[in-house]
Measured scan of single mutants.
Amino acid sequence: MPSETPQAEVGPTGCPHRSGPHSAKGSLEKGSPEDKEAKEPLWIRPDAPSRCTWQLGRPASESPHHHTAPAKSPKILPDILKKIGDTPMVRINKIGKKFGLKCELLAKCEFFNAGGSVKDRISLRMIEDAERDGTLKPGDTIIEPTSGNTGIGLALAAAVRGYRCIIVMPEKMSSEKVDVLRALGAEIVRTPTNARFDSPESHVGVAWRLKNEIPNSHILDQYRNASNPLAHYDTTADEILQQCDGKLDMLVASVGTGGTITGIARKLKEKCPGCRIIGVDPEGSILAEPEELNQTEQTTYEVEGIGYDFIPTVLDRTVVDKWFKSNDEEAFTFARMLIAQEGLLCGGSAGSTVAVAVKAAQELQEGQRCVVILPDSVRNYMTKFLSDRWMLQKGFLKEEDLTEKKPWWWHLRVQELGLSAPLTVLPTITCGHTIEILREKGFDQAPVVDEAGVILGMVTLGNMLSSLLAGKVQPSDQVGKVIYKQFKQIRLTDTLGRLSHILEMDHFALVV
């Protein structure tokens, strides 16, 4: 994948999101292997301009796509893939009243899908469409860049269908997702969380590099694949309309690839034109409109599966009536509230959605109805927002919020430890010299600072030695090549209790 991002070429006709291997024109390309080798690009942008032909009021008969309808489940399912879809609609009884809503608040519980998330729908649909058009064949390999849930859905379907599955996901995604993927037989590649989507090191860039190296491999490409919004247009939206008897006044959905909100909203605009569509985008993402909503100094966020630093091709923002931004604290607070007060075992993005819903639905009156999409299960986040310690460490809970008995030293300040200034190293000294210094002084790690004293990161003896043994660096290389740029900081005025929580999850903390 090139470091400079080429513009994806656009073909003359058809839909841009065809499933299957992508040609340089962004659509299915038939021909000899030699032709494909000559024409197939190194990668295709996940934010390529959409060429979708959908228009409100256009006859369904003019759609270029294969459409399906929700099917009634048999008493005995032939395999677990038949437990994807037909998820329950559940009334939220307490939270709406707590925040003064007059309307009825309903939750579409997508964590009841077989793999635990709304992404099971698009995973199965992308595979079925690729099999139907002859792209996927027995023994082929599926590769997908994902925040985890699409990966789980694909790995689940691949396990049943017999495909090899490789999932490329950023490091910030939970260990629970990784464990589930491994249990399903998927191979996992992790990428830096802070890598831009168009960087060769991003999950998108690495996935395309693997595709170019592995024979008979395919990126189904949830960011561009029409099967993504079509899955929701054909099934999720129809289920909502049936469950609500066609009567709903507002739908609120958090947005990642945009397939969920695009597919549902398009069908609702056709069948229930008075329904307002509300999009939820986390602070630090750029999906919301108008652009002024996205202006923030924050560039990272903890909530998973929603928000991006690019506009995915499948996201149709014209069908969203209003956007709201959400933050991590309210997302996790509301997710825990949904679990504790409503018994809905949902993930953090569901918290984002409901946090926005109780604001947006203030305009609705008694007798009206708001539906929220709860995308995934708490299963993926047992060591994250479900953990009091994690919430404390991230600053989303305060010590006084917890009532468990603490040891005698818990409320003492870090400054009472009488710490001395640490050994520091410059980023320009060599790895070999740094190892000598650390061994001589008896230290395992040291902060790396520039000549102005600005902290650049941390270097550890173990990481340097393993990097040297693996051949990633040489003793003569500058130590700046092996620094940890993500590390926890703590102030002298913070409590030892807070430091204790940090050290339970990290090997060190830097006192500043």
Rank of each mutant, 00 (worst) to 15 (best):
P2E: 12
P2C: 10
P2T: 15
S3V: 13
E4P: 12
T5C: 09
T5S: 13
Q7Y: 13
A8D: 10
A8L: 15
E9D: 15
E9K: 14
V10P: 08
V10L: 15
P12Y: 08
T13H: 08
G14H: 12
C15E: 10
C15R: 03
C15K: 12
P16S: 05
P16G: 09
P16I: 12
R18V: 13
S19V: 03
G20M: 09
G20P: 10
G20E: 15
H22E: 15
H22K: 03
A24T: 14
A24S: 14
A24F: 12
A24L: 13
K25C: 15
K25Y: 05
K25M: 11
S27I: 11
L28Y: 11
L28W: 06
E29H: 12
E29V: 12
E29N: 12
E29Y: 12
E29G: 12
K30F: 05
G31Y: 05
S32P: 10
S32M: 05
P33I: 10
E34P: 06
E34Q: 12
E34C: 03
D35V: 13
K36Q: 13
K36W: 05
E37P: 13
E37M: 07
A38S: 12
K39E: 12
K39P: 12
E40R: 06
E40N: 10
P41K: 11
L42S: 05
L42P: 09
W43F: 15
W43M: 11
I44F: 15
R45W: 06
P46R: 02
P46N: 01
D47C: 03
D47T: 06
A48G: 13
P49N: 08
P49W: 09
S50I: 05
S50E: 07
R51E: 08
R51H: 07
C52P: 00
T53M: 08
T53W: 08
T53P: 07
W54N: 06
W54Y: 08
W54F: 08
L56Y: 11
G57N: 13
G57Y: 08
R58L: 15
P59K: 10
A60L: 11
A60Q: 10
E62M: 14
P64L: 05
H66K: 05
H66C: 15
H67R: 15
H67E: 10
P70N: 11
A71I: 14
K72W: 04
K72R: 12
S73I: 12
S73H: 10
P74R: 08
P74F: 08
K75N: 11
L77I: 05
L77N: 07
P78D: 08
D79I: 07
I80Q: 01
L81D: 07
L81S: 07
K82R: 12
K83G: 10
I84G: 08
I84Q: 08
G85A: 07
G85Y: 03
D86K: 10
D86Y: 11
D86G: 11
D86F: 10
T87F: 00
M89K: 07
M89W: 01
V90T: 07
V90G: 01
R91Q: 07
I92M: 11
I95C: 08
G96Q: 03
G96I: 09
K97W: 05
K97S: 15
K98Q: 11
G100Y: 03
G100T: 05
L101E: 00
K102M: 09
C103P: 01
E104G: 12
E104V: 12
L105Y: 03
L105G: 05
A107G: 15
K108W: 00
C109G: 03
C109Q: 08
E110S: 05
F111I: 04
F112W: 01
N113R: 01
N113V: 02
A114W: 01
A114Y: 02
G115A: 13
G115S: 08
S117C: 04
S117D: 04
V118E: 05
K119Q: 05
K119R: 05
R121M: 00
R121P: 04
I122P: 00
L124H: 11
R125V: 04
R125I: 03
R125T: 05
R125K: 11
M126Y: 06
M126F: 05
I127W: 06
E128C: 03
D129M: 05
A130V: 07
A130I: 01
A130H: 01
A130N: 01
A130E: 03
E131M: 03
R132F: 08
D133A: 04
G134L: 07
T135S: 04
L136K: 01
K137G: 07
G139D: 09
G139L: 07
D140Q: 06
T141W: 12
T141E: 06
I142T: 04
P145Y: 00
T146G: 04
S147H: 01
G148W: 03
G148I: 00
N149D: 05
N149S: 03
N149A: 05
N149Q: 02
G153L: 02
G153A: 02
G153S: 02
L154P: 02
L154F: 05
L154K: 01
A155P: 02
A155N: 03
A155K: 01
A157T: 13
A158C: 02
A159G: 05
R161K: 14
Y163E: 02
Y163T: 01
R164Q: 03
C165P: 00
C165F: 04
C165L: 06
I166C: 03
I166M: 09
V168I: 07
V168L: 07
V168Q: 02
M169H: 01
M169Y: 02
P170W: 01
P170H: 01
E171H: 04
E171F: 02
K172L: 01
K172P: 00
K172N: 05
M173F: 02
S175M: 03
E176D: 07
E176Y: 00
E176T: 00
E176K: 05
K177P: 00
K177E: 04
V178Q: 03
V178S: 05
D179N: 05
L181H: 00
L181M: 06
R182E: 07
A183C: 15
A183S: 14
A183M: 04
L184G: 06
L184C: 07
L184T: 07
G185E: 06
A186I: 01
E187V: 07
E187F: 06
V189M: 10
V189A: 14
V189Q: 06
V189P: 06
V189L: 11
T191L: 02
P192F: 05
T193V: 12
T193F: 07
T193W: 08
N194E: 11
A195G: 03
R196D: 03
R196H: 04
F197R: 06
F197H: 06
F197D: 06
F197V: 03
D198Y: 07
S199I: 06
P200S: 08
P200N: 08
P200W: 08
H203D: 03
H203V: 01
V204S: 03
G205D: 12
V206L: 13
A207E: 01
A207R: 00
W208P: 08
W208K: 10
R209E: 10
R209P: 02
R209T: 07
K211N: 14
N212W: 09
N212T: 12
N212C: 13
E213S: 05
E213F: 08
E213T: 14
I214F: 08
N216K: 09
N216T: 08
N216R: 06
S217H: 01
S217V: 01
H218Q: 09
I219V: 07
I219D: 00
I219A: 04
D221C: 02
D221G: 07
Q222S: 01
Q222C: 00
Y223M: 04
N225R: 02
N225V: 00
A226W: 08
A226M: 10
N228P: 02
P229S: 05
A231M: 09
Y233L: 02
Y233C: 01
Y233M: 00
D234R: 04
T235Y: 15
T236W: 00
A237G: 12
A237T: 12
D238K: 10
E239F: 00
E239C: 00
E239R: 01
I240V: 14
L241T: 04
L241N: 01
Q242P: 03
Q242M: 14
D245G: 15
D245M: 08
D245T: 05
D245P: 09
K247Q: 15
K247P: 07
L248P: 12
D249W: 03
D249R: 07
D249P: 01
L251E: 04
L251I: 12
L251Y: 06
V252C: 10
V252R: 09
A253G: 03
S254T: 07
G256S: 01
G256W: 00
T257Q: 01
G258C: 04
G258H: 00
G259L: 00
T260K: 02
T260C: 08
T260M: 04
I261A: 08
I261M: 09
T262G: 06
T262K: 02
G263M: 01
I264C: 14
I264W: 02
A265E: 05
A265F: 00
R266L: 00
R266S: 02
K267P: 03
K267M: 14
L268R: 01
L268Q: 01
L268K: 04
E270D: 09
E270M: 06
E270T: 03
K271F: 15
K271A: 10
K271E: 13
C272Y: 11
C272F: 12
P273W: 12
G274Q: 12
G274D: 10
C275P: 02
C275N: 04
C275A: 11
C275I: 14
